[in-house]
Amino acid sequence: MTDSTTPAATTGDAQAEGAQTTAAQAATAPPAAAAQATPRKKTDASSLAAAGPSKPGAAQPRGPYYVDFRARTAASYGHAFLWYGKSSEREVEVAGLHPATDSPVPYVLGHVMPVPSETGASYGDLDEEYLLANYRVYLSDQDAPKVFAYIQKLQKTTPFWNATTTNCTWFIGQVASFMGLKTPWHMMYPEDYVNELKKINGGRDVATLTSGQ
Rank of each mutant, 00 (worst) to 15 (best):
I200W: 06
A144T: 04
G85W: 05
V137E: 11
Q142P: 00
P104Y: 08
N195E: 14
T22E: 01
A121M: 05
M187A: 05
P30D: 02
K55V: 08
E93M: 12
H79N: 06
T5K: 13
A133K: 04
F69W: 03
R72E: 03
A9G: 15
Q36I: 00
A37D: 05
V92E: 08
T2N: 11
F69A: 01
L82G: 06
A45Y: 04
N162P: 00
I151R: 08
A149Q: 14
T22N: 09
M1R: 10
G57M: 09
V94Y: 03
A176I: 03
E89W: 00
G12K: 12
S117D: 03
G173Q: 02
G96T: 08
G85I: 04
T43R: 07
A19C: 07
G110K: 08
T10W: 04
A75Y: 01
A24Y: 07
N195Y: 02
A49E: 13
R40N: 10
T21R: 13
D205T: 13
P114I: 02
T6R: 14
M187K: 12
V67A: 06
I200E: 05
A80F: 05
W170E: 09
H186V: 05
A58F: 08
V206R: 15
T10C: 02
G52P: 06
P184F: 07
K153P: 00
T73M: 03
L139W: 06
K153M: 07
T38K: 10
T101F: 05
A32H: 08
F171P: 02
D143H: 08
T73W: 01
A59F: 07
A71I: 04
K153G: 00
T28C: 11
P159W: 11
G78W: 03
V105F: 08
F160C: 00
E129N: 15
N162F: 03
A59L: 14
L154Y: 12
H186W: 12
Y123Q: 14
D13Q: 09
G57F: 10
A75D: 10
P56N: 13
V94N: 04
E129S: 15
T208L: 09
Y150M: 10
A51W: 04
S46R: 13
A14M: 08
G96D: 07
T169K: 05
G57P: 06
W185F: 15
I151Q: 10
P104W: 06
Y138E: 12
P7C: 02
K198N: 12
K55G: 00
M1E: 12
A58M: 11
A8S: 14
E118C: 01
K182I: 03
N167T: 05
M187D: 12
D205F: 01
E89L: 06
V105A: 13
A133Y: 03
S211N: 12
K42R: 14
I172D: 04
Y66I: 06
D127N: 14
D143E: 06
A71N: 09
E129T: 15
T165Y: 10
K156P: 00
A207V: 10
Y138D: 03
L126I: 09
T166Y: 09
S140A: 10
Y77G: 02
D3Y: 09
P104N: 13
E196K: 15
A16D: 07
